[in-house]
Design a binder for these strands. Structure first.
Length: 563
RNA sequence: GCACCGUUAGCUAAGCUGGAUAUAGCGUCGGUCUACGGAACCGAAGGCCAGGAGUUCGAAUCUCUUACGGUGCACCA
């Protein structure tokens, strides 16, 4: 039930459409005033009446009905209270009917949304700087699928560039097979860090690295074999983390995949007269648009990031025919995206408008920025492990008899890591601290999961006692009503999250709803209530659990039955 | 220097297209255990929404401006 529209339909204000009225309907700051309100101030001028008078007149003209239980005029506001029982019936029926699809809606009609996220670099370990793109992308992937789109997850691997020359150089100098087989990607990373340390003293190493990279490009068997091995190791390592985080990809086409797809882009740019030589490089001049030039080819003729990204965008359009292509990449690259989006537009690709840079804030450490080269990083796996360990300790302390303790600890610990990264607006910078990551109190996934466990526990006891829920609905109390309204808002919340590319909306919804459930839970006895009330409350409890599971599920967080 | 982003309680943050008393969590202090799971709940203290100007009946929200912080600005990705 769309109450705003319903109210608008029953109001007539001369010169204003129903649509406009519906848009003007707002939610008052507290429930005592009403559930919806129409501020009448903006109508005063052309109606030549005071807002107070307008509200009063509208109130008197509003027809009595079943859906709205009370209409009042207060200080120029027209306040509405909805029929609580009606709302309860509506929401509970819908959640019961839709179950794990509650909140879903076929908005997309199967249209494709490409999502470029996580995009790890080969031979670099997964650190907390990669967390945001990974979990944001993963959440958006699920959200769009939930809304009837066909999401295509793309891990645009960083598997191309001089850094691999450096790595091979370092490996040949200081590494060996056993070292890497035992130490895995972290050992590889140490080699990389060492290279940079040594290269400061011996700059000739840089030349060696460039030579090795050239060999890869030229298809040198030994170098390529080494490179493929590094790639395999990296994916194996990273996949462990993806699996724990519940992240999936449909494509791992990375930078090297586009090696042979850039020349046509360059040719097309040249044909269209967009390419221009400047300081020895081939550029597209963007001065007219207030941007520095987009460099297409370096002065030595080799390609760049932007060239590859354009080739990738064109490939994706041809392959997937996307409705939108989202790039979940940190805001540092704002200019880069603006540039190559613009160049594609200048090339006459009308779909360039469907490319979206979903920018998010940076992660730094308390002692400054992270740097893979300097080895100043916190590995994501370490953070996850610590959270899981802490969860296990707490379970051991509070609920030692619990079965599957390790499994539950995994759900709780991983959930905390994911939720922490999704709870705030994505654009905000984050200073990582273990204290914050390991906090399980208050506005956290653990709180929400705990709330679910409480709800599940009540439902289990009810089932054991043979209590049935019924289709009848009681007049909701204040707490019950607040909870019901929260549950009713979930579908809108999912759509808002999708259109703003903000999974945090859903994370906030989870905490808000859990808070309301806990208030209800404390004030309203469920199992000890009289038959009719108990049946209603059980249904409300079940609906809450269903909704929270759906919401957390979209974020990639599992809900244990007990914890 | 130019561009983009940020600035809300001691700390971390919500606040949707301008609307009624600015909202949570953490921390602090004080309560609720004869418990449908205390990883919970209630209460208190804590605010010139960075400063200034403007638009408006009405501004944390829109515009301009200043300050502070972050990021980016030609051959890295």
């Amino acid at each position: 039930m769309d109450y705003k529209r319903y109210i608008a339909k029953h109001l007539t204000i001369e010169g204003i459409s129903e649509e406009e009225i519906a848009e003007a309907v707002a939610v008052p700051p507290n429930t005592d005033m009403g559930d919806y309100a129409l501020p009448c101030f903006k109508f005063a001028k052309f109606m030549r009446k005071s807002p107070v008078q307008i509200a009063e007149d509208l109130k008197n003209a509003y027809p009595a009905d079943e859906v709205i239980s009370e209409v009042s005029a207060v200080n120029g506001y027209l306040n509405f209270k909805v029929n609580r029982k009606g709302l309860a019936k509506d929401v509970l029926e819908r959640i019961g009917r839709e179950g794990e699809r509650y909140g879903a809606f076929d908005l997309g009609g199967g249209k494709v949304i490409c999502l470029d996220y996580s995009s790890v670099n080969i031979a670099k370990p997964f650190h907390i700087g990669h967390l945001s793109t990974t979990v944001l992308g993963g959440a958006l992937y699920r959200i769009f699928n939930f809304l009837g789109y066909k999401a295509v997850g793309i891990n645009h691997l960083g598997d191309y560039g001089t850094q691999f020359g450096k790595l091979i150089s370092a490996y040949n100098r200081w590494g060996n097979k056993e070292l890497i087989e035992q130490g895995g990607i972290r050992a590889l990373n140490e080699l990389y860090v060492r290279f940079h340390r040594e290269a400061e003293k011996h700059p000739e190493l840089e030349d060696e690295a460039r030579a090795y990279f050239k060999k890869i490009e030229d298809g040198d068997k030994e170098c390529l074999a080494l490179f493929d091995w590094f790639k395999e190791l990296t994916l194996k390592d990273v996949n462990k983390v993806y699996e724990r985080l519940g992240i999936k990809f449909d494509s791992y086409a990375g930078e090297s995949f586009y090696q042979d797809k850039m020349q046509p882009v360059v040719d097309e740019l040249r044909e269209k007269g967009l390419l221009k030589e400047s300081r020895g490089a081939q550029i597209v001049d963007l001065e007219e648009y207030g941007m520095s030039p987009c460099i297409i080819l370096k002065s030595d003729g080799s390609s760049l990031y932007a060239t590859r990204d354009m080739a990738a965008a064109i490939y994706r359009k041809q392959t997937y025919d996307f409705e939108k292509c989202l790039y979940v990449v940190a805001y540092q690259q704002n200019l880069h995206f603006k540039q190559f989006f613009k160049v594609l537009e200048l090339m006459g690709k009308e779909w360039a408008k469907d490319l979206v840079h979903v920018a998010y804030g940076m992660v730094s450490l308390e002692d400054g920025a992270m740097s893979t080269r300097k080895g100043n990083v916190i590995f994501l796996e370490d953070v996850i492990n610590q959270c899981v360990e802490k969860a296990y300790r707490i379970i051991d302390e509070k609920n030692a008899a619990l079965e599957n303790k390790a499994d539950v600890a995994e759900k709780v610990g991983v959930g905390a890591v994911v939720f922490g990264a999704l709870y705030n607006s994505k654009i905000k910078d984050i200073v990582f601290s273990y204290d914050k990551a390991l906090n399980f109190d208050g506005e956290t996934s653990v709180y929400v999961q705990y709330t679910c466990a409480r709800a599940a526990s009540v439902l289990a006891k009810a089932a054991a006692a043979g209590y049935k829920s019924s289709d009848e609905v009681c007049e909701p109390s204040a707490q019950e009503f607040e909870l019901l309204k929260a549950l009713a808002s979930f579908p809108d919340c999912v759509q808002a999250a999708a259109s703003a590319y903000e999974p945090s909306y859903i994370a906030r919804f989870c905490v808000d709803t859990a808070q309301k459930f806990n208030k209800f839970y404390l004030d309203c006895k469920i199992l000890q209530a009289e038959d009719e009330t108990r049946a209603f409350r059980l249904r409300l409890t079940q609906a809450t659990l269903t909704t929270l599971k759906n919401a957390l599920g979209l974020l990639g967080i599992a809900v244990p039955e007990k914890m």
